[in-house]
Every structure is written in structure tokens, then in C-alpha cells.
Design a protein around this nucleic acid. Structure first.
Lengths: 165, 165
DNA sequence: TATTGTTATACTCTATAACTATA
DNA sequence: TATAGTTATAGAGTATAACAATA
């Protein structure tokens, strides 16, 4: 059976509500004087590394945003830039030793807090919750990457496509 | 079995990833020149109404933030303030007719987009995803409202509590 | 011409602090 | 004294536009 309209509404509201309660946490836990956004950058560099343009896509931010965040992280000695030998426009990003330590510190602190919150949960509950959220994220990401005309998401491109005929 | 450390880590990352893909949507769909935050305010006023202080708690924002958002919505004729007969400091909030229409418009647009994205989903998948997210949200909200000492979330209050002995 | 990355600027959303009015 | 709400100011995070260097 396809998704009902009311269920879609409930899902939207549940996601928005989740974002609102998360704000409180992110606010309080400025993990070691590191902003939440910068922590995210640190994570993807640690996990993937490589060119900024690819990381920006993974992070769903525009290039200027990532550029400035990397700058900040580099100034703190957490991230190293080195030229891409295959493309002199590009740069390859990686964590420094200090960056790896900071990332581990931030992650561990977050895990500790969440584990305490999830004291009443079963392992299987948490795992299936993660699966649900991942699946939703993947679905949204795929839909967002579809040719815009196929989706009512982007009015402008839709109109452009119509106008182009 | 209690939640494993690795599962907690995965859950955190899945939530952060979800937030990042959502940003793209919220960005593109400035639902009828209404910001995402204002749309949220409109929703809770429509759903609960009443005093600003109570709505601020539901929305997880501070009073000044809500005050300004309500101001904006009132100027657009979407929200009405009236004095609370039982407490002359307070005000009771409600949607205008125009506000109800705008809220319905925003919600319907969002639902339409999400339904298209969830074309490959079963009703039961969406419902259980909603349940998972709601449960997570409730758990976080409860933990955040606990006496701060019980949770490692707030260092300052923890230290204050220790210092008070 | 297109792509990688940077700088400058502006916008959204939120918080803290200081205040007024009422309880 | 404490609470409801407002105003002023600041900060985090992001986007768009204009640019430089390289492909």
C-alpha cells in the first residue's frame, strides 16, 4: 500500500520536531569549542578525505561554506591541505594527527551523552531507528538529485524546462 | 540488550546526515515566502494556541525568538494576539482565517513533495519510520528536561551542583 | 568554456542581556 | 521576587555573486 497523506504529514512533523529538540543539544554541547558544522566537516574529511568539491556534495553545503570551514580547521591545525598532483586547481584534504584526536574526542563525548539518554532502549530499537533514518535520508537525497522536472520540488527549474519547449 | 557504542555512533551520524539533506529541501521550498521557522510557529499556534511561553517550550526556542516570529506573523495578518483575561502579563495566540489558509497551503505543498519522494515506500514503512523518529525525539526531550546533574550534558550546571555542596 | 576554490556580502535562525509590566 | 513578554545585539551557519587560476 502506498504512503497515505496523513502518514506523510506525521512523518514531516516528526522530523521537524526532532530537529527542534536536537538544537538544544547542539547548542549546549559546543564540543570542545568546535561548532557542530565544523565537527561534521572534520568527520567527512576523516572518513573520506580528498577534494573539497566532493566533500561539499557529501555535506550538502556549497563550496564557499566549506572553504571557510576548512580554513578555520586548518588554522587550528586540525586539517591539512595539500595540492592534488593530478589537478592543480584542486587540493586534497586530510586530518592532521591533532585533527584525528579532536574528532575522536568529539565523537566519544557525543556517544557518551547519547548512550546515557538511550539507557532505556534495546540495542535492536536503536539499530532499527538508525536504519529508518538512513533509509529516509537516502530517499530524500535521491529525490533531490533527480532531474528537477520530475519533481515538484523546484519551481524555477520546472518553469524553465517548460519555457524551453 | 543495551545499546552498543557503535550503534549509538551510527545513530548520531544518521541523524546529522538527515539534517543535512533536509537543509536542501527547506532551502528550496521557501513555502510561500514563509520561512521554515515561521511555518513551525504557525503550526503550533494552529495546533495548540494559547500563551507564548508555552508555545516557546513546545518549539524549543527562547522567548525573544518566538516574540519576533509572532510579530512577523501578526504583521502579515496570519496570527492574532489577544490579552489573557486571567493574567494581564500574558497574551493568547491564535491563527486568523488567513493564517489557517496559509498553514494548510504550506502543509499541503510539503505533503505533496514528500509523497512523491516516498513513491517507492509502503505505508507501513513510513509509519514505522515516523514512530522511530518520534520515539527518539521523546527520549531526547525527556533527557534534556532531567535534572541537569543526572546527565553529562551540561557541564556548568553539574559543576554548580557540586560547588553548592 | 567549464571547473576548483576563494573572498565579499547578505540572509535565516537562534541566543543572551537588559528592560517593562504584571503577579 | 518571580514571570510574561519585548527590544537590542551578537553569533552560528548558510547562500549567492563575483573573482582567480587551472583544465
Amino acid at each position: 500500500m502506498p504512503v497515505e497523506s496523513q502518514t506523510a504529514r506525521d512523518l514531516i512533523h516528526s522530523v521537524f520536531d526532532l530537529q527542534r529538540v536536537l538544537r538544544c543539544l547542539v547548542q549546549e554541547r559546543r564540543s570542545g569549542d568546535l561548532g557542530a558544522a565544523e565537527a561534521g566537516v572534520l568527520r567527512v574529511i576523516g572518513e573520506f578525505g580528498g577534494r573539497a568539491v566532493d566533500l561539499a556534495e557529501k555535506l550538502n553545503v556549497t563550496a564557499p561554506v566549506l572553504s571557510r570551514q576548512i580554513n578555520e580547521l586548518q588554522e587550528r591545525g586540525l586539517v591539512a591541505r595539500r595540492p592534488d598532483p593530478e589537478d592543480r586547481r584542486a587540493q586534497l584534504l586530510e586530518l592532521t594527527e591533532s585533527g584525528r584526536a579532536k574528532l575522536a574526542e568529539v565523537e566519544d563525548a557525543r556517544i557518551a551523552v547519547l548512550l546515557e539518554m538511550l539507557a532505556g532502549w534495546e540495542q535492536s530499537d536503536a539499530a532499527s531507528c538508525t536504519d529508518s533514518i538512513r533509509r529516509l535520508t537516502d530517499t530524500i537525497r535521491q529525490a533531490a538529485h533527480k532531474p528537477a522536472v520530475a519533481l515538484a520540488t523546484d519551481h524555477e527549474q520546472k518553469e524553465n524546462a517548460l519555457a524551453a519547449r
